[in-house]
C-alpha cells in the first residue's frame, strides 16, 4: 500500500496541545480579572470588619493574574486583558449577597483552573493549577459559610 494513501499517525500534535493549554490559561486569566473586579463589589457591600478578608482574596487573585500573565508573555502571547465592564449575576445589596457573589467568583475561578488541569501539557502548569485550585476552594468555603450555604464544602470543586 502506498504511503500516500493513508495519512501518517504521528500521535498527538504537540503544537495543538500547547495551544489548548495556552487557551485554558487565558480563560483562567480572564476568571482572575473577573474575580478582581468582583472583589471591588464585595468590599463595598461588606462591613469594614470584613475588609481584611476581601483584601486578602483580591491580593491572591492579583498574584495569580500576574503570574499567569507573565507565563503567557514568556510564551510570546498577549495576555487577556480585563473587560471594560462586567454585569453582576444578581443584585448585591447585603453582606449575604456579597458572600454569595464571593462563592460565584471563587467557583468560577476553580472551574477555570480545573480546565487548565485537564488541558495542560506542561507539568509546571499542572503544579500551578493544583495550588491555585486548593487556595480558591479554601476561600470558597469561607464565602459559602458566610452566605449560609449548606454544605459549605464541595466534593469536586471546579468539576
Amino acid at each position: 500500500m502506498s504511503a500516500d494513501v493513508l495519512a501518517a499517525d504521528d500521535g498527538p500534535d504537540p503544537d495543538a496541545a500547547r495551544a489548548e493549554e495556552d487557551a485554558a490559561l487565558q480563560d483562567a486569566l480572564a476568571a482572575a480579572h473577573a474575580a478582581i473586579w468582583g472583589h471591588g463589589v464585595l468590599g463595598g457591600a461588606l462591613p469594614e470588619a470584613d475588609r481584611p478578608v476581601v483584601v486578602a482574596g483580591e491580593e491572591a487573585h492579583r498574584d495569580v493574574r500576574d503570574r499567569v500573565a507573565g507565563l503567557l508573555r514568556s510564551r510570546g502571547l498577549q495576555p487577556a486583558a480585563p473587560r471594560a465592564g462586567y454585569r453582576l449575576p444578581f443584585p448585591v445589596l447585603s453582606p449575604v449577597d456579597a458572600a454569595a457573589l464571593g462563592v460565584v467568583l471563587e467557583d468560577g475561578v476553580a472551574a477555570a483552573w480545573v480546565t487548565v488541569l485537564g488541558r495542560a501539557v506542561e507539568r509546571a502548569t499542572r503544579e500551578l493549577a493544583v495550588t491555585v485550585l486548593g487556595a480558591t476552594e479554601l476561600r470558597a468555603v469561607d464565602w459559602r459559610t458566610r452566605a449560609g450555604r449548606s454544605p459549605v464544602t464541595e466534593a469536586f470543586p471546579g468539576l
Binding site: V114, L117, A129, T136, P157
Partner: peptide
C-alpha cells in the same frame, strides 16, 4: 485524571 485529582485535593 489530572483534573479529577486536583479537584479531589481541593475538596
Amino acid at each position: 485524571r489530572a483534573a479529577l485529582l486536583g479537584s479531589l485535593a481541593a475538596g
